[in-house]
Design a protein around this nucleic acid. Structure first.
Lengths: 145, 145
DNA sequence: CATTCTTTGCGAAAATCTCGCAAGGATTTG
DNA sequence: CAAATCCTTGCGAGATTTTCGCAAAGAATG
């Protein structure tokens, strides 16, 4: 994609907040015509600047009321495990986010479950493996964004 | 909101993946008419089951290529600081996520910046405060989801 | 089994998006 | 510096999508 100008940035900013804004609403806020806005947004999507559009569903409704952040440390002797782990995490519905990080830990996971029982079972199933050296669970009390 | 049935769950599932599916496309996938699907989706939005719709913008294109996870520990003598901190974080564009957690740390932040220089400046500005006892920065090498 | 409440599909009307076109700027080229 | 080229704009028509009223089909209630 070519360069993005200030109009594009403004559009991205707005759509990141609310992707359902209509061409008219965008036009009003950025100072272009509706058609121009929509054309630009279309282009942003085609070129991959906007990767996708998603609905944010309240976790409560889904019954997943408990969130835990896990700091995971693996044994250092098997670096190939990293990719396997990553792929395994990708498939687990409880894992809503997975970051491979530098430093004392290897992964930071964000886990979403119904209750402590479910979390407990998850830990048992996933973390009690020989190549996992240590894991630290941080229960989330509240979140922003 | 009343109870959600299997149609609602299916719709949520689909819209979480792609919120731009049209009524017709939804209809085809869930086996209801276009109007029925749209009515249900409308209701899911009104009742807050769908909290919002957002465009996912490629961080690279946005020039925010660096992601850092920060484990933050505050001094224990001022619990009221928590709320202030939280609100402060909410306003910072670098902070894309903020979780208040139990355990040794108080907050887990996800920070998105352009480069090390910007991160460095952010740390200087935000974390070098007397009520912040310790912070640990984990640079993100790669992520899922 | 009648009543009431809810949800459906249909179809018309409203809103929104897409696209071709001519015009206005910006950039390049000679 | 002007001509040529390229890019983006606003407009407006046409296509697509969403909203909404309505009658009917299902469920739930008593």
């Amino acid at each position: 994609m070519a360069e993005l100008d200030k109009f594009d940035y403004r559009l991205l900013e707005l759509l990141q907040e609310n992707s359902r804004l209509t061409g008219g609403a965008l036009a009003e806020k950025v100072g272009l015509s509706s058609a121009a806005c929509l054309r630009r947004v279309q282009r942003l999507r085609e070129t991959g600047v906007i990767e996708r559009d998603v609905a944010v569903v309240s976790p409560k409704v889904f019954g997943k009321r408990m969130m835990v952040i896990v700091l995971l440390t693996m044994e250092r002797d098997r670096p190939d495990r990293y990719i396997l782990m990553r792929d395994a995490f990708a498939k687990m519905p409880e894992v809503v986010q997975c970051h491979h990080v530098t430093g004392a830990h290897d992964f930071v996971l964000r886990i979403q479950v119904s209750d402590m029982e479910e979390y407990s079972a998850f830990v048992e199933r996933v973390f009690h493996e020989p190549y996992i050296k240590r894991y630290e669970s941080l229960a989330v009390l509240g979140s922003l964004k």
